[in-house]
Amino acid sequence: MSNQIVARIIRRFTKTILCIFGVILYLKNLSSLVNKKLVINTYLNEVMKVPLGFFEEDFRLSQKGIDWLEEWNTEAEIATSISQIAQKVVEILVNVPGMTQAHSRDFRRARPIFTLKDGTVIKVFINPANVKHIFLADSNNKMLFGGYVGWIDTKGLNQAIEKIKHSLTSTS
């Protein structure tokens, strides 16, 4: 392949990715979508300055793609109260080196690993980049806490999870 063809492919790919991220951010801030396709085309044309018909030949954002974007941006329902046991767990977790607040959209992707004495569920999600997330859910599956650590701090998170499991579950 010639350098010109490779450069053209890279430019097209980069522009497409930037447009997709722009659409994601734009959709996240919309309170209601009356005509999703119209909104996306308008956004691409007016905000990203992509000419109408740019994607007609080789890219169409399908309804499945739009649904995925909306699902990806759906936030979890947050609990309004927290038990004393769950408070202890949060204190343990926030003291793990590297702990960072997780986005609530990953809450529903997390899988339960054990339940505490008070019914609080400890859930874990590992994203495609292999970053470990931990979430606490109350007995109604509402989010109490969400955090993650980078690769370098995963060992500390695993130790905290084991500490919580051995000291605050009903089998302890």
Rank of each mutant, 00 (worst) to 15 (best):
residue 1 M to P: 04
residue 1 M to A: 12
residue 2 S to V: 01
residue 4 Q to F: 01
residue 5 I to H: 06
residue 5 I to N: 00
residue 8 R to N: 11
residue 11 R to E: 14
residue 12 R to L: 08
residue 12 R to A: 14
residue 13 F to K: 12
residue 13 F to W: 06
residue 13 F to C: 06
residue 15 K to R: 12
residue 15 K to N: 01
residue 15 K to T: 10
residue 16 T to S: 10
residue 19 C to D: 07
residue 21 F to T: 12
residue 22 G to Q: 05
residue 25 L to I: 03
residue 28 K to I: 05
residue 28 K to W: 03
residue 31 S to I: 00
residue 31 S to F: 05
residue 31 S to L: 06
residue 31 S to H: 13
residue 34 V to A: 06
residue 35 N to R: 10
residue 35 N to L: 05
residue 35 N to F: 10
residue 36 K to I: 09
residue 38 L to M: 11
residue 38 L to R: 11
residue 39 V to D: 12
residue 40 I to Q: 01
residue 41 N to E: 15
residue 41 N to F: 04
residue 43 Y to K: 12
residue 43 Y to R: 07
residue 43 Y to P: 09
residue 45 N to T: 12
residue 45 N to G: 04
residue 46 E to D: 15
residue 46 E to C: 12
residue 46 E to W: 03
residue 47 V to F: 10
residue 48 M to T: 07
residue 48 M to D: 09
residue 49 K to D: 09
residue 49 K to H: 15
residue 50 V to T: 10
residue 50 V to G: 02
residue 52 L to M: 08
residue 53 G to S: 10
residue 53 G to P: 05
residue 54 F to I: 02
residue 56 E to D: 15
residue 58 D to W: 14
residue 63 Q to Y: 07
residue 65 G to I: 00
residue 65 G to Q: 03
residue 66 I to E: 00
residue 67 D to F: 02
residue 67 D to E: 15
residue 68 W to A: 13
residue 72 W to V: 06
residue 74 T to K: 15
residue 74 T to M: 14
residue 76 A to I: 04
residue 77 E to I: 14
residue 79 A to Y: 04
residue 79 A to W: 08
residue 80 T to R: 13
residue 80 T to M: 10
residue 81 S to C: 13
residue 83 S to V: 05
residue 84 Q to I: 09
residue 84 Q to M: 06
residue 85 I to T: 14
residue 85 I to L: 13
residue 86 A to F: 02
residue 86 A to T: 08
residue 88 K to D: 11
residue 88 K to A: 07
residue 89 V to E: 03
residue 91 E to P: 00
residue 92 I to M: 03
residue 92 I to S: 01
residue 92 I to V: 15
residue 93 L to G: 00
residue 95 N to G: 08
residue 95 N to F: 06
residue 95 N to P: 00
residue 96 V to H: 01
residue 96 V to W: 02
residue 97 P to G: 04
residue 98 G to A: 07
residue 98 G to P: 13
residue 98 G to H: 06
residue 104 S to M: 08
residue 105 R to S: 10
residue 105 R to C: 13
residue 105 R to D: 12
residue 108 R to K: 15
residue 108 R to T: 13
residue 108 R to V: 13
residue 110 A to E: 04
residue 110 A to N: 07
residue 110 A to S: 15
residue 112 P to G: 03
residue 113 I to M: 08
residue 114 F to Y: 15
residue 114 F to A: 01
residue 115 T to N: 02
residue 116 L to F: 07
residue 117 K to M: 12
residue 117 K to L: 12
residue 119 G to C: 07
residue 120 T to H: 02
residue 121 V to Y: 03
residue 121 V to K: 14
residue 124 V to D: 03
residue 124 V to L: 13
residue 126 I to H: 02
residue 127 N to H: 11
residue 128 P to G: 07
residue 129 A to Y: 14
residue 129 A to R: 15
residue 131 V to S: 05
residue 132 K to D: 03
residue 132 K to C: 07
residue 132 K to I: 09
residue 137 A to S: 15
residue 138 D to M: 06
residue 140 N to F: 04
residue 143 M to G: 06
residue 143 M to R: 08
residue 148 Y to W: 09
residue 149 V to Y: 03
residue 150 G to N: 09
residue 150 G to E: 10
residue 152 I to P: 01
residue 157 L to C: 03
residue 158 N to L: 10
residue 159 Q to D: 11
residue 162 E to S: 02
residue 162 E to V: 10
residue 163 K to S: 04
residue 163 K to D: 12
residue 167 S to D: 13
residue 168 L to Y: 15
residue 168 L to C: 05
residue 168 L to P: 02
residue 168 L to D: 02
residue 169 T to R: 01
residue 170 S to H: 12
residue 171 T to E: 14
residue 171 T to M: 08
